[in-house]
């Protein structure tokens, strides 16, 4: 299947990446090229095959439901682009 310009814009929106209108045709070509290539998987017979989700063939461990870390807001906020007191700050979301 082939992506149209509207779908390219929709994917960019879902991925939260701003794409200028002028960049859509180039991106459309690149993405369609890659998707056309991975289309070859449709020829593989996967009837009755259970999907492999992880790299480790082991069950994930459980751990205790306990707080093991934290309590140092200054270290956490040290990399924040903007802050207000002990909080991350963002532009106003609710009017």
């Amino acid at each position: 299947m082939s992506l149209d310009p509207a779908t390219v814009r929709r994917i960019a929106r879902l991925a939260r990446i701003r794409v200028e209108d002028a960049a859509v045709p180039r991106l459309q070509g690149e993405l369609n090229n890659i998707l056309g290539w991975i289309e070859q998987l449709s020829e593989v017979d996967v009837e009755g095959v259970a999907p492999l989700t992880g790299g480790a063939q082991i069950a994930l461990r459980m751990r205790g439901d306990a707080v093991t870390d934290g309590g140092y807001p200054e270290r956490i906020l040290a990399n924040a682009p903007d802050r207000a007191g002990e909080f991350f700050a963002v532009p106003k979301v609710v009017e």
């Binding site: 991106l27 998987l41 449709s42 593989v44 095959v49």
Partner: peptide, 26 residues
């Protein structure tokens, strides 16, 4: 990121991502 977003998106997940996980099992 955009390829990944697309193959996980509603309507395409089974055709791409789920199929790829099955081929990975093979």
């Amino acid at each position: 990121i955009m390829i990944g977003t697309y193959v996980l998106s509603a309507g395409y997940y089974d055709a791409y991502y789920l199929r790829a996980q099955k081929v990975r099992a093979l």
